[in-house]
Design a binder for these strands. Structure first.
Lengths: 156, 156
DNA sequence: GTTAATTACTTTAAGATTAAAATATCTATA
DNA sequence: TATAGATATTTTAATCTTAAAGTAATTAAC
């Protein structure tokens, strides 16, 4: 392979290494400090951004995971009274999932802690550098996604 | 929270988004083109870097996953004849896991394809930019890890 | 208005993952 | 040389994940 190819491979491995490190740290913190998991946090975060709730299919679309995946996580959150399923008027197939008041209160605490953990672990990066690097990553992500559209125009 | 905190949170979300995107793409490719998975690929990659093999505990250490995790993946790879467990002379507790000749041949193909997929999806980034960004990420990772050592000196 | 196709969601089967418990072996010490 | 503690691995129980199959309800075609 070319040296350019090796450079991109190395970039990917760095990206993956850092992301796994931070990701693992966040999972540990959620488990120890809130007895919860990242997938549960992700579901509650999505619902928090939509106070009126989301249909199961919308939720799995937003989170980019399978339908069946969300079913199981919603089941467990519902058992604990953090979310509730509400029937959709006029469509008996669909269900809206939304945070309960208890879920809202719990998530507010988790979200504040989550932001603080990230601020803490990434404290070595200045705010300016963080903005710069975020902008670069947007460019990289766009290049990657455009690449896919060129290869498979069906996703237009 | 401060604006700096928000900037770092946004950086993290970008990092996570890009990594998940590429990660998902690689998993798809491994599944479709080689009928395998990323964890299996990771195990074989680690063994490939150590032709004499690795003890189960060394392997889980290198991959930073639990012992029990490696046990299951090794079981499945062994069933297919891609890896083999070799007893360790002088320590009947331990087992060395290593690639079989078939595993070596299979991994060589997967590794070449893997590098090509990454080169392809990150093709929008020049080799120079890739090197630059990789260097920045090393700095970020070091800052993150130093932060942890300061917080918990037991890991010295 | 019945039938066919589509849509929304759940269930199932398999693998990945962890922490904690269980096994088996080794090492050091009394 | 017993035995107590440490080490290497596997097993177990729980959650997460997907793809594929299954259920129920809606929409479209005829």
């Amino acid at each position: 392979m070319t040296t350019a190819s090796k450079d991109r491979l190395r970039l990917w491995l760095r990206l993956l290494g850092l992301t796994r490190h931070v990701d693992g740290h966040l999972r540990d913190k959620l488990r120890v400090e809130f007895k919860t998991t990242l997938p549960r946090f992700d579901v509650m975060a999505a619902l928090s951004r939509h106070p009126e709730g989301l249909k199961m299919s919308q939720l799995s679309g937003v989170l980019r995971v399978s339908n069946g995946n969300v079913t199981g996580i919603a089941d467990r959150l519902a058992e604990e009274g953090l979310v509730e399923r509400v029937p959709v008027p006029g469509d008996r197939r669909a269900m809206i999932l939304r945070l309960t008041p208890a879920g809202n209160a719990e998530f507010a605490q988790q979200a504040a802690a989550h932001e603080a953990w990230i601020n803490d672990i990434l404290h070595g990066i200045s705010a300016a550098d963080a903005r710069l690097m975020a902008a670069q990553l947007i460019a990289v992500a766009q290049a990657a996604e455009n690449k896919e559209k060129i290869d498979d125009p069906s996703h237009a």
